[in-house]
Structure formats: C-alpha cells, structure tokens
Design a binder for these strands. Structure first.
Lengths: 252, 252
DNA sequence: CGGTCAATTGAATAGAGTCAAGCGTAGTGG
DNA sequence: CCACTACGCTTGACTCTATTCAATTGACCG
C-alpha cells in the first residue's frame, strides 16, 4: 500500500477506534464489511440506485440533509472519513435524511446483510458501532438545543468549534497543539454554513463578518484559521467534546 | 400477574417489538436486563447517585433535556413506556442530556455490564436496540430540520402529531381509528411544549390559541383532543411515521 | 382565604428573513 | 488575451416573527 492510500486507511481507523483500540484481526473484519467502492462529485446525492444502503466514507467530506415540505433544506451534520452514512435510514421506510457530497468523495457500500452478520460474528465491533451512534445522537441533541435556544452567532461558533475538533482528531497532531493561527480545511460555502445552523446565507455572512472583525477567526479560500480559540469557546458556550472510555464492551 | 401490571408489560413490549415480533424466550432475556426498579416524581431528574446508568422506562412520561450555558433548557424528546433512557450518555464523558420525569414514573436500571453481555449473548436483541437508536436519530434529525427551517406553528403541529402517533401505538387501537375528537393524554404544560419546540411560553400560548381558534385541536386538563387531523398534518408538513421491516437482523 | 403555578393578554423591542443590487474571482471559449 | 458567464460573497432597506417585560385571571392546595 503506497502513501496516499495508507493515509486514507489511517484516517478511517482513527475514527472507528476512537473508543477502544482495535486489533489487527478486528480491522480485518471491518475491511470485509465493505463492498464495492464508488466515487461521487461535489453536490451529488450519495445513494445506491435501488435500495437504501449504508456506506463507509473513505475519503472527502459529506453532509446529511433533510428536505422539508416548503422546499428548504437543513444540513444536519458534516461527515468526515471514517463515518458510516445512512444508518438512520435503516429504521424507517422512507429515510428522512439524504447524504450529499461536499467534496469529491469515495465510499464503500456496506450491505444490510453484512451488518446483520456482524452483530452475530463480532459483537464487540457491533457494540462500538452502537456507541458511535449514541455519540452522533448526543451531538444531534446538542445541536438541537443550540438551534432551539441560542442566537445564531453562538450556533455558528459551536459548529466551527466542533468541526475543528473533529478535523484535528484525524490529523497528525496528537497533542492539543492548538497554537493560534491553526488552519483547517473547510470546504463549505456560507450558504451551507447557514443551512447547518438554520439561518439564511445573507445572515450567515453578517455572522462571519462579526467573527472576523472581532479577531476570532477568518474563513477564506475553503479554509478556516482560528485566531482566538478561547474567545471562540466563550461565544459557543460549550465545552470540548470528550468521548467516554467504555470498560463494559464485550471482550474480544 | 394482575391487571395493571400486565398492562404495563404490554406497553413496554409493544415498543420493543415494534420492528419484529419477539419470542417468549427473548422477552425473558429482556426482562433479565433490568435491575432494581425505582420511582420518581414529576420534575425529578432521573439519575443514579454515582454512575451514569441507563434505565428502561416502565411507566409514566419522561423527557430528555439539554441545559445550556445561559441557563435555558431545551427539551429534546418525550419518552414513553418502553423507551430506554440514558443511552446517548454512554458515549461521552459528561452526558449532555438529563432525563426528567414529566409524571410520576417507574424505571428499572440497566447496568452497562449487562448491556455489554447482551451484545454477546443475544445479537438479535442488540441489533433491535441498535435500530431503535437509529429511529431516535431519525426523529432527532427531523426535529432539528423543523427547528432550523420552519415557523413555530409548524413545529408545534409536528410535535403534537408525533406524540399522538406514539401514544396511539401503545394504546388498544390497532387500526388507524383516528375518528375526529380522539383524546390523548398530554401531561405537558405550555412552558414545556415551548421548551420542546424552542419558543417562549408566551409565544406557545399564542400558537395553541391559534390552533384552537382554527378548530384543529384543543388542549385542556392534561389532555389533547384532535378535531381536524388532516389540517394538523397540513400545518405540520410531515408525513406519518413508518418504521421499516428489517429482514437482515441476525436470526434467533 | 392567601399562596403558588399555569394560562392568558398587551406593549415595546430586536433578531433574523426576504428582496434587491453590486462586487470579486475563476473558468470558458472565441 | 479578452469578453462572457457563473458562483460566492457583501451590503443596504424593509418586514415580521418571536422575545422580554409586565400585569391579570383562573385553578388548585394547604
């Protein structure tokens, strides 16, 4: 495996082994979950043709979105490599969320049958996927609370803060080396940022301007630079995200 | 088992066997998950003293809430008998949600260790709990989209509609006998309704008044009566909730 | 019969949306 | 190399939903 490829693998694994470290044999089983790999371009809807299937995001950024009766769209969450896409759709007849590609992405499909087999053959990995889903649920609850109760500027700050945390997690930096001026890849237009926090693109612009003027951060050219992480945290009014260290998972 | 008790059991089971019907042996295993049972009064926070544990809600209504830095509170979702409480808290070091009792409730604790054992000993039930969590996630995504994009009246209509669906599910009515004038138990104050849809109590009052004046429904005395279900659905702009019928679950 | 809590109403204010127009940059093709 | 175009960003003006503050009513309880 040459350089770029193993880098992808590393990012995916760093996501899946976030709760407990995985053994080589488990990684082997994980890789056997995947089927055919596909590519999608920015703006594409990530779906198979017939069935609502699930996918492992291998490379690129995606977002799950909900379309409403009035034609508007809410972006629910941003997905990075290592995320499994389409899981919520397993529970309902017509999935309410759609996954769209934010950049060029690469995914490998995971069939429902293999998912079912996995629950039997490797309960430990099943429990980890269960945990990751609970984490997503927690993130959703936080977002819902912010959207329902706080001003738009708070929601924007919180969103950017969580995105940075998630980005940093799959980067080389092990330590919390958040030196001021750290730059993050951010392939989102202001329109999309607005759809993520539930405001119009026009108002999003005003919010970004405000953060820029206050010297908190700057966004340009598909990347974001944090100048004052402490102030950002203040505005967001949330604490850094910390995963649990579960000791109750089924043994290997 | 006498009347009232078996009625409780029936409600709990009707929730857990919503995706596929369970066999007696599986119900037996489920009941072995539970530990000590506790009671809480309206307004109490449902937590064990030391550890963040999970609970099976046996009787009464509860709600999970998120407290924010500014002191405000957002109610995330309403829980009815059969729901498992506290699952999202398994994934993070400090759970962001708190479960509060809306009525007098009865719960039985489920320890993490038993949950872990269950993934090994009964993958089928584990997969069902996984599915239910995905359903919760879908509901959360819908709610987030509504909160972010639509007017408060829409959110109120959608909330009440989903609560009715969920209530009807654990009632005797098998058919869709939603004759106009059907009455549902609704132990929520207008303040709490407001916290659920992200508006102030004052504005909630105006919204309820509007629905009442338009002859859509009426709320009084801890119960709600639907007069025009079709119009309610129109205002809510959502379709009835339908669970999938998964064929990929691990066999018994 | 006062006390607490929920529901209700009114008035003033502000956050955010919509509409509309102008600007910068990148890509495309003659 | 220069139009022509497209898309994203930026700004201003006007509107309206929803908030906060304040005060009143009604119901239930000790």
């Amino acid at each position: 495996m040459e350089g770029p490829f193993s880098e992808k693998i590393r990012r995916v694994v760093s996501r899946l082994s976030g709760f407990v470290s995985l053994e080589p044999s488990e990684l082997q089983q994980l890789s056997e979950l995947g089927g055919r790999t596909c590519r999608f371009e920015r703006g594409d809807v990530i779906t198979s043709d017939v069935e609502h299937d699930t996918y492992l995001l291998v490379d690129g950024w995606a977002a799950s979105a909900v379309m409403l009766a009035d034609g508007s769209r809410q972006l629910i969450s941003v997905n990075l490599p290592g995320d499994v896409l389409g899981l919520p759709g397993l529970a309902v007849q017509n999935p309410i969320d759609t996954v769209v590609a934010l950049t060029t992405v690469e995914v490998t499909s995971i069939s429902k049958e293999r998912l079912g087999d996995m629950f039997r053959s490797n309960p430990r990995i099943a429990a980890i996927m269960f945990l990751i889903s609970q984490e997503e649920r927690s993130l959703l609850m936080e977002k819902l609370a912010l959207t329902g109760q706080t001003a738009a500027i708070t929601r924007l700050a919180a969103l950017l803060m969580r995105i940075c945390e998630r980005s940093a997690q799959s980067e080389d930096t092990d330590g919390e080396s958040e030196m001021p001026g750290k730059e993050f890849f951010l392939p989102l237009t202001q329109r999309e940022l607005g759809e993520l926090i539930g405001v119009s693109a026009v108002h999003t612009n005003a919010l970004v301007k405000q953060l820029r003027n206050e010297g908190v951060l700057s966004i340009k050219n598909r990347s974001m630079t944090i100048h004052d992480a402490e102030r950002l945290r203040e505005i967001a009014g949330i604490v850094p995200w910390r995963r649990s260290e579960p000791k109750w998972l089924p043994s290997r």
